[in-house]
């Protein structure tokens, strides 16, 4: 949206006219501006300060963290914490599980979303309205946490399998509707010419529609992937008996949140971490599990803002 803002001439004009510039600026207007800039800069700085501190401290020695009250850049730089992480099977396994869940989960999401969106985007489909209403209704009414849990754990018996985190969120109704609208915007002539040439509907989808929608698929793939990487609740409640399948987020909860003295849940702790892990190790784990998000952040910002805008304009 930031870009859309800037390129629109209307916005430029508005910025000019909200306050006089240059020589015309009154004293009060200048004070207003100064206050505004300082305040917003402070807010933005506060927003990223925790990250800067965590990154800095993850490279510090345990002694320095314990003795020096406040610092951003450590005096003695050490990579001991990272060395520990990458030698710990537990954390490496968690990292692997997170990658596995993210990749498979996103593939499942895209498959389910695209197939359903394509079929439902065809106005000629008999019963289309019924299926559309079925999706929309589910956006407003849900069974809640417990009935959902019972379906996954007791009826489908998926406890302690990766399916328990891959399947329950296979389609986001909201994303599916947006993809459906995109498919409807593709010129019908393209698809018709292909079906005259003997393509089935599946052939048209694979050969004509999907190649045209790569940017959309990338966007929604990213949406889903971030969701999988950040998710912890499903894995926490469904994989209670399969620690070797835990993703990084659940491991992080155990390492940092449960191991904290106040949590009072120490008996659940893994033998590898009988002692609560050192501060620098906690920080390094936080950094390691945030890095993948930071790598895709430039794309995220661009696409997610657009996504919010689509929702805003519709609503």
């Amino acid at each position: 949206m930031a870009e859309a803002n800037m390129s629109s001439p209307q916005h430029k004009k508005m910025i000019v006219s909200t306050g006089p510039v240059g020589q015309n600026a009154t004293v009060s207007s200048r004070i207003f501006d100064a206050f505004n800039y300082i305040f917003l800069t402070l807010v933005a700085f506060t927003t990223i300060l925790p990250f800067i501190y965590i990154i800095g401290a993850s490279f510090a020695t345990e002694y320095e963290i314990a003795t020096r009250p406040m610092f951003i850049i450590p005096r003695d730089v050490t990579v001991n914490a990272y060395r520990f992480i990458f030698s710990s099977n537990k954390i490496l396994q968690g990292f692997g599980n997170s990658i596995f869940i993210t990749v498979c989960g996103t593939a499942i999401n895209l498959f389910f979303t695209v197939t359903m969106a394509y079929a439902i985007s065809k106005p000629r489909l008999r019963g289309r309205n019924f299926f559309l209403n079925m999706v929309i209704f589910s956006m407003f009414f849900s069974g809640g946490m417990i009935p959902g849990y019972i379906v996954v754990a007791n009826i489908l018996n998926l406890k302690n399998t990766f399916w328990s985190v891959l399947l329950p969120g296979a389609i986001s109704a909201y994303n599916m509707m947006i993809v459906k609208n995109f498919f409807q915007g593709i010129p019908q002539e393209l698809e018709e010419s292909a079906s005259i040439d003997g393509c089935t509907d599946i052939g048209v989808l694979l050969r004509i529609v999907l190649p045209l929608s790569l940017p959309v698929l990338a966007t929604f793939g990213l949406f889903y992937a971030v969701g999988h990487w950040n998710a912890y609740f499903g894995a926490m409640i469904y994989m209670t008996g399969a620690k070797q399948k835990w993703p990084l987020q659940v491991l992080l909860r155990e390492l940092i949140i449960m191991s904290n003295g106040s949590a009072g849940d120490m008996n659940n702790l893994d033998p590898e971490f009988v002692q609560p892990p050192e501060q620098s190790i906690k920080m390094a784990v936080i950094v390691v599990s945030t890095v993948p998000i930071m790598c895709v952040y430039p794309f995220l910002q661009k696409y997610f803002v657009k996504g919010v805008m689509v929702g805003a304009l519709k609503g």
């Binding site: 079925m134 589910s138 849900s142 009935p147 379906v151």
Partner: peptide, 12 residues
């Protein structure tokens, strides 16, 4: 998907 993961819990 919608029947199993959305409507079955609703019935549940």
């Amino acid at each position: 998907y919608f029947i199993v993961f959305k409507y079955l819990p609703l019935f549940g």
